[in-house]
Amino acid sequence: MKFGRMKSHRRNRLLIIVFIVCAAAGATTFALFALNENINLFYSPEQIVKGEAPVGKTIRAGGMVLDGSVIRSEEGLGVSFVVSDLKSAQVKVEFEGILPDMFREGQGVIALGQLTDKGVFVAEEVLAKHDENYMPPEVADALKDVNQPSANTLNKANYN
């Protein structure tokens, strides 16, 4: 009687462990697959101009919105603007929809979308930050070599 109980107890434990291992392995595989399909790489304007960014794949692009580059269409909600790294690289972005409140010329933005073979970036989503001093880290990196206050110094100034 006692022996039998021991056995079932051990069997139970083994079953639990096998179950957990299988479930964990399955979940991990599934998660990694899903992850692989749903990550969006960031490309700076320079990389896009150089042709390093893939065409027709969802990626993120970002930089400063060039002064005077925002053009709205006469009909609908179409808008286009140019993001640059404030050096030589410039990429035209087209977007259909409502831009975020903090979107302004001379402001750092990140766009999620696809690059066409003509080198125009068609955005599904445009992100700008809700804090005037905040610079997306990606954009700060893309602007790194330019003589511009970086995200860190801006924020330090805010908190000095």
Binding site: F30, A34, L35, E37, N38, I39, L41, R60
Partner: peptide, 13 residues
């Protein structure tokens, strides 16, 4: 290299 993980990942998993 910088990436972001979008809502589709979370929804799928």
């Amino acid at each position: 290299k910088k990436i972001s993980v979008g809502p589709p990942y979370f929804n799928r998993v």
